[in-house]
Computed example of a mutant assay.
Amino acid sequence: MGLGITNEDRVRLYHNLVNCRRALVDHDILRKPTDSSGSFLRNTLRRLSKHKLDKLRQEHGGDTGETYKGFHYAFWAFSRQPLPQSISRIPEADEQVMLQVFQIILTYAGLGQNGKL
């Protein structure tokens, strides 16, 4: 008979996870995410109504309070897309290997090129 995980355990584990993420950011181990679509997104958001903007923020974690020093929730989220760069600061030669490893993981998970099944 196994013991189930309690809500208190979940909350404690979640806060430990957030603290670990913040420590990685504070120790400058992570590379800032690239924002290749920044101007497009900003221009698109200007045209959205307040209701649509609120809905978009909810769907993409924009108001969850999980942005820390420029690292948004999406930085930590699972991705089906190949990474454009490594998330940690590593030598360039190692970075190329890590990007290939991530692509292999996606393929092994049943996702082909660009995250498609």
Score class of each variant (00 low, 15 high):
Pro33Glu: 04
Gly112Ser: 10
Ile104Pro: 00
Gly38Val: 06
Lys116Phe: 08
Leu53Ser: 08
Arg46Gln: 13
Ser36Ile: 14
His51Phe: 12
Val18Trp: 07
Glu92Phe: 12
Arg80Trp: 04
Gln113Phe: 12
Ser88Pro: 04
Arg22Trp: 13
Ala74Tyr: 01
Glu95Arg: 00
Thr34Phe: 04
Gly70Cys: 09
Glu66Ser: 01
Leu83Asn: 07
Leu17Asp: 13
Ser79Ile: 00
Ile90Leu: 11
Thr67Ser: 03
Ile5Met: 14
Met1Ala: 15
Pro82Glu: 03
Gln96Tyr: 11
Asp54Arg: 13
Ile5Pro: 00
Arg31Lys: 09
Tyr14Met: 15
Pro33Gln: 05
Gly115Leu: 02
Pro91Ile: 02
Glu66His: 06
Ile104Lys: 12
Lys69Phe: 01
Arg31Val: 03
Gly38Arg: 11
Ala93Phe: 08
Thr67Gly: 03
Asp94Lys: 06
Leu30Val: 07
Asn114Phe: 13
Phe75Cys: 02
Arg12His: 12
Gly2Leu: 06
Ile87Asp: 00
Ile5Asn: 08
Ser86Thr: 09
Leu117Trp: 15
Gly4Thr: 12
Gly65Tyr: 04
Ser88Val: 12
Arg22Val: 11
Arg47Tyr: 03
His51Glu: 15
Leu45Glu: 10
Asp26Asn: 12
Phe40Ile: 13
Arg47Ala: 01
Trp76Ser: 00
Ile105Ala: 10
Arg46Asn: 11
Arg21Met: 03
Gly112Lys: 05
Leu45Cys: 07
Leu24Phe: 14
Gln100Cys: 03
Arg21Gly: 01
Val11Ala: 09
Leu117Gly: 14
Val25Ala: 04
Arg21Lys: 07
Lys50Gly: 06
Gly38Trp: 03
Leu3Asn: 09
Gly2Ser: 05
Leu117Tyr: 13
Pro33Leu: 04
Leu48Asn: 01
Pro33Thr: 02
Ile90Ser: 01
Gln85Ala: 05
Tyr14Ala: 15
Ala93Asn: 05
Gln81Tyr: 12
Leu83His: 04
Asp54Tyr: 06
His72Asp: 11
Ile105Gly: 02
Ala93Trp: 08
Arg46Ser: 09
